[in-house]
Nucleic acid binder design. Structure first.
Lengths: 345, 345
DNA sequence: TATACTTAGTAAAACGTTTTAATAATTTAA
DNA sequence: TTAAATTATTAAAACGTTTTACTAAGTATA
C-alpha cells in the first residue's frame, strides 16, 4: 500500500513497519551491505523502505552536517547560443557525479548575481559554477571572496579573474583570434577587417588582441569595423563602410561570434556582395546552425560542452579537497574550414 | 568584522552579538517592521544581522515546515533550440516569484526523469515543471501521480496528458499546422508537401494532422515527405524525391521545426533549387536564427518564453492552493511571413 | 566458573531554526 | 493600593535525521 495522504513517510514510519528502531533503519540505509545486522533485519528494513517509498529528507541530513547534493550555476543568459551548451555540459557532468544543479540566469546584472549567490549560501549548496558579469567589477571579486571565505568552492567559466584564488575554465581567446587571422592570411588575404561590437567584453577583446597581433606579425594593417549590438542596421552600415572605400577588405573576421557573422552574410547579400566570392567572412563559436546555413560558416569551434563538463569536474575536486594544480584551465579550440572563407590571390 | 573562519553565522551568534535571545532575532527577522519589540532592540538585531551577514539556513527552516523556495524543472534537452527559451521564461518568472529553479536535463530518458523526480522529492521542492518524455508512457503517468499524491504541485509544459489531474501549458499544434497550410494554399500553392521526421512525437503529429485536414478541406492531396533525423543526407534524399517526380511540390511545410526547414533550404541549394522562386519552404518555431538567414524563414512563431513563464505562474497558483480553472492552457501562435515562402499562380 | 570479547540492536543527543506559551516588567483601571 | 491589562522578551519544544555511546545477550578464552 502506497501512502496516499499527501505526506511523505519518515524514518519512524519505516522503523515502525519493520519493527526496529530508527537508528537501525538509518544505519542499514547508509550501508545496505553492512554486516552489523542480521540478514533478516536487513531484509525487513529494506522492504519497509520500498513499501513506503521512503527517501530521507535532505534537509534533515543537512542538519547533521551532510552537504546538499546541489551545485549552483550562474550564467548570464540562455538566449545567447553559447550558454545552453555550456550549461548542458555542466549539468550532465554534475548529475554523473551525484549532484543536481540550481540554475540562475543573471542577465548580466551584478545585483541579480549577488542575490542568487545569497540564496545559494542559504540553501547550503556544495559548490558554485560562476559565469558572472563580464567586466571584473569590484563587487564580482567580493562575491567570489565571500563564497570562498565561507568555504564554498567556486569555479569560474569563460571569465578570467586573477585575484581571488579560484580556478577558471575557458579558451585561450587570444591564441584563437591569432590563429584564425593567420589562417585567413595564409589563404592569400591582405586586407582583413575585424568585425566587432562596440560593447566589447573581456574575452572578445582578447580575440581582438589576437587579430591585431597576427596582422602586425605579417606586416598588415588591422582595420576595425565596429557596430552596435541590438541596433538594427548597424552591421549593414559597418559593412557598407568597409566595402565602399577604395581599399576594400577581402575578408572579415567576426570576433563577436557566429551570429554576427551570419547577420553580416545577410547584409552582404543585400549589398549584392557574394560570400565568399567577393568577400570572405569568418565567425567564432561554431554554433549548431553554422554548419547548416548557406554558405556554411568557417569558424573557430569552442568546446562549449567540454567547458561546462570540465568546470564541473574541477569543482568536484575542490569539493573533495583535492589539489587543483592549475589556476587556469584552457581548453583547445579548433579551426573549422567551411564555405564562407575563400582562398584568393 | 566579517567572519573569516569558513563557517556561517548562526542565529545564536546574532543573538549573542545583539545581546538578546535567538527567539527575538527570529521574530524580528520574520517581520522587521513589527511593533512587538522596542526600536532599540530592532536596531541592535538588524545591525548584528548585517555585521555577521546572517541569513537563516534554509534546511533548518524546512524542518519547521517551511517549503523550500525551489522549483524543479525537467526538460528533455538544452540543445534543441526550443527549450532554452522556455527554460528562460520559466526561471525568470520563478525568480520574480521568489523561487530558484533546479534544472534537470533528461535527454528524453524516462529513467533519468524518474531519478530526478526522486531527488526533487527528497529535497522537498515546492513544485515541479515537467516537460517529460514525449510519448505518454505509463511510467510517466505514474511519476506525475506520485508527485500529486505527495501533495507536490505539477505543471506540464508542451506535453498533453489527460489522466492525472495536472494542468498543461502549450500550443494548439493542430490549429497551427492547419493555419500555416491554409496560408500557403492562399498564396496559390496546390502541391504542398509536408516535410516530417519519421521519429514523430505527439505534438508534431498534431501539426501533421492540421496539415492533412487543411489540405482535405481545400480538396488537395496531402503529400508526406519523410526523413530520418540524425541521418546524414536524409533530407536531401527526401527533397530529391518530391522534386524529381512529374508532380513536383511547389511548397514544403517543415512541421518538425525551423532547423529542418533551414537544412532543407541548404539541400535545395545543392540541387540548384532556388528558394523561394522554385520552391517555397515554411518552418515551425521561429528560432532566433530564422530571421537572420538568407532567405529568412516564413514560419509559425511559438511563444516559447511565454510558455515557460505561464507554466510557472500556473504552478504558483497551484502552490498557493488557488483554483486553476483550465486544465489546458493554449497560448496563441503567430504566422510570421518572411522570404522563404512565395506567392505563385 | 569467571572474564573478555562479539554480535545485534537501541536510546538519546545533536544539528539550526521557528513558535508557543510563559515570564517579568510596566502601565492602566478600579 | 491592588488587580488587571499591556508590553517586551525569552525558555523550551519541535521538526527528521545521523551518530555515538551504550546495553544485553551470546560466545569464546583462560
Amino acid at each position: 500500500m502506497v501512502k496516499r495522504n499527501g505526506t511523505r513517510a519518515k524514518i519512524t514510519d519505516v522503523a515502525k513497519l519493520a519493527g526496529v528502531s530508527m537508528a537501525t533503519v538509518s544505519c542499514i540505509l547508509k550501508d545496505p551491505d553492512n554486516n552489523r545486522f542480521s540478514d533478516e533485519t536487513n531484509k525487513k528494513v529494506l522492504s519497509a523502505v520500498k513499501e513506503l517509498n521512503f527517501r530521507p529528507a535532505t534537509f534533515a541530513q543537512q542538519m547533521k552536517g551532510k552537504t546538499l547534493p546541489v551545485i549552483g550555476l550562474v550564467i548570464p543568459s540562455l538566449m545567447n547560443h553559447f550558454y545552453p551548451e555550456v550549461t548542458s555540459g555542466f549539468t550532465d557532468q554534475a548529475n554523473k557525479l551525484g549532484y543536481n544543479v540550481i540554475f540562475a540566469n543573471t542577465d548580466n546584472s551584478i545585483e541579480r548575481e549577488q542575490s542568487f549567490i545569497d540564496t545559494m549560501i542559504s540553501l547550503g549548496v556544495a559548490g558554485v559554477g560562476l559565469c558572472g558579469v563580464d567586466l571584473p567589477d569590484e563587487r564580482e571579486k567580493e562575491l567570489v571572496k565571500r563564497l570562498i571565505n565561507l568555504g564554498i568552492p567556486v569555479v569560474r567559466l569563460d571569465r578570467y579573474l586573477e585575484e581571488p584564488d579560484c580556478p577558471c575554465v575557458g579558451l585561450d581567446n587570444f591564441r584563437a583570434g591569432y590563429f584564425m587571422t593567420e589562417k585567413i592570411i595564409q589563404l592569400g588575404h591582405r586586407n582583413i577587417g575585424c568585425l566587432a561590437p562596440y560593447e566589447i567584453v573581456q574575452i572578445v577583446s582578447e580575440r581582438c588582441r589576437g587579430y591585431m597581433e597576427a596582422m602586425k606579425a605579417h606586416g598588415l594593417l588591422p582595420k576595425l569595423c565596429k557596430f552596435h549590438r541590438n541596433e538594427f542596421g548597424s552591421i549593414y552600415k559597418a559593412l557598407e563602410e568597409v566595402w565602399t572605400g577604395e581599399d576594400r577588405v577581402s575578408a572579415l573576421f567576426a570576433i563577436g561570434g557566429d551570429i554576427d557573422a551570419i547577420e553580416c552574410i545577410k547584409c552582404a547579400s543585400r549589398l549584392n556582395i557574394q560570400v565568399p566570392f567577393d568577400l570572405s567572412i569568418a565567425g567564432f563559436d561554431d554554433i549548431y546552425i553554422s554548419e547548416i546555413i548557406n554558405p556554411s560558416l568557417t569558424t573557430i569551434k569552442q568546446p562549449k560542452f567540454e567547458i561546462g563538463a570540465t568546470a564541473m569536474r574541477i569543482l568536484k575536486s575542490l569539493i573533495d579537497g583535492d589539489d587543483v594544480e592549475e589556476e587556469m584551465i584552457l581548453l583547445p579550440f579548433e579551426y573549422i574550414a567551411r564555405e564562407s572563407v575563400n582562398a584568393i590571390g
